[in-house]
């Protein structure tokens, strides 16, 4: 494992392009939540030529639908959901200016092309480590689509949020590289 890289948001294109597949990062600042239902609305808003309810340029979206917070908690358990469900919408948002995505699992070639085109990065957080990840989330505030409940868009304040660069802005894919190294079949 390499050194840990500390990242602050918003993430510039230059900072995103400096990250390489396999890098381990700790993210501090503001990130936004969003899942399928919210993505659908965001893309429909852009298609209509209207303004997004949150400014996503140079921002990172975390694919998560947390559990309800218990009294005294900023947020409930909050691990990543499967990113592939967002593939239909991500290229449009990346072309718009979204800089990073955090989730788990593979992405479509269309998403990777849009990442290369725009200088973006895809991070993986550990799926199933939701109680652990929640420790790095200091505040949770719903900022759009409250009717979507756990799927609403929320602004998260994070400190040292742990993630791994799995696909970098050149399209290098750490899932493929890592698995190839250990495949014995």
């Amino acid at each position: 494992m390499g050194d840990v890289i500390r990242l602050a948001t918003p993430l510039t294109e230059e900072a995103a392009r400096s990250l390489k597949a396999g890098d381990i990062v700790l993210i501090t600042g503001t990130i936004y939540t969003g899942r399928d239902a919210a993505h659908k609305r965001l893309v429909e808003t852009l298609e209509r030529g209207e303004e997004l309810p949150v400014e996503l340029k140079n921002q990172i979206i975390y694919y998560v639908g947390p559990t309800p917070a218990k009294p005294g908690q900023a947020v409930g358990s909050a691990g990543p959901t499967t990113s592939g469900r967002m593939d239909a919408y991500s290229p449009r948002l990346l072309d718009y200016g979204l800089r990073g995505m955090i989730g788990k699992g593979y992405r479509s070639p269309e998403v990777v092309e849009a990442m290369k085109r725009n200088g973006c990065v895809y991070f993986a957080a550990t799926g199933g480590a939701a109680a652990l990840i929640a420790k790095s989330i200091k505040a949770y505030e719903v900022v759009a689509y409250p009717d979507l409940l756990s799927e609403a868009i929320a602004k998260l304040t994070v400190e040292d949020f742990p993630a791994i660069v799995v696909i970098d802005s050149e399209g290098r894919n750490f899932y493929e590289e890592g698995q190839k190294q250990y495949r014995q079949l």
């Binding site: 550990t126 799995v166 899932y175 890592g178 190839k180 190294q181 250990y182 495949r183 079949l185």
Partner: peptide, 11 residues
């Protein structure tokens, strides 16, 4: 032996 490993990152 598939090499998928923890979180699919190889192992």
């Amino acid at each position: 032996k598939t090499g998928v490993g923890p979180q699919g990152l190889g192992g």
